[in-house]
């Protein structure tokens, strides 16, 4: 796509975060007034284990330009090992998305509650990466 079109394109991103780590990190980014782009909407889950890969599929099919997931670092799950199971599911769905070149639109992160800065920076880099990818081909499609 042309440079001009890129400039106009504002990515829509949906993120799923664990309440105990990344959601708290997002709060901390707020407390520290770390500005980041306004493109992401967060859906709060209690644990990354609640992320059903179907959510990712649905988001992408509904036209989300980017989807991200972020949970506690492996080994630090509030629910002891929820994120280990989550990681397997995510790896599976990523592999499926990869087949259709969609894996670049789905990012996963581990961001702990104290990493407010990392959260803000992640939102920045994520938005830029998705902007670079351009709009989701599903956007506006009648499916």
């Amino acid at each position: 796509m042309g440079e001009e079109a890129k400039e106009e394109f504002e990515p829509k991103i949906v993120g799923f975060t664990c309440n105990w780590c990344t959601y708290a990190a997002a709060d901390l980014a707020g407390t520290s007034r770390k500005k980041y782009p306004p493109n992401s909407r967060i859906i709060r889950l209690m644990c990354s284990a609640r992320l059903d890969p179907m959510f990712v599929l649905k988001a992408l099919l509904n036209g989300a330009d980017g989807v991200f997931f972020s949970g506690c670092h492996p080994g630090e799950c509030h629910y002891i090992k929820g994120n280990f199971y989550a990681r397997r599911r995510i790896a599976a769905i990523r592999t499926i998305l990869k087949q259709f070149g969609l894996d670049d639109r789905f990012k996963s992160y581990w961001i702990s509650a104290s990493e407010g800065e990392k959260f803000a920076n992640t939102m920045k880099s994520l938005t830029e990466e998705v902007r670079e990818l351009g709009p989701n081909p599903m956007r506006g499609k009648i499916i």
């Binding site: 209690m46 644990c47 992320l51 599911r89």
Partner: peptide, 18 residues
Amino acid sequence: CGSCASYCPSGAMSLKHF
């Protein structure tokens, strides 16, 4: 935590409020 709900393919298992 909802781990069960996220696996269950038929949605027989669900996490209340989520």
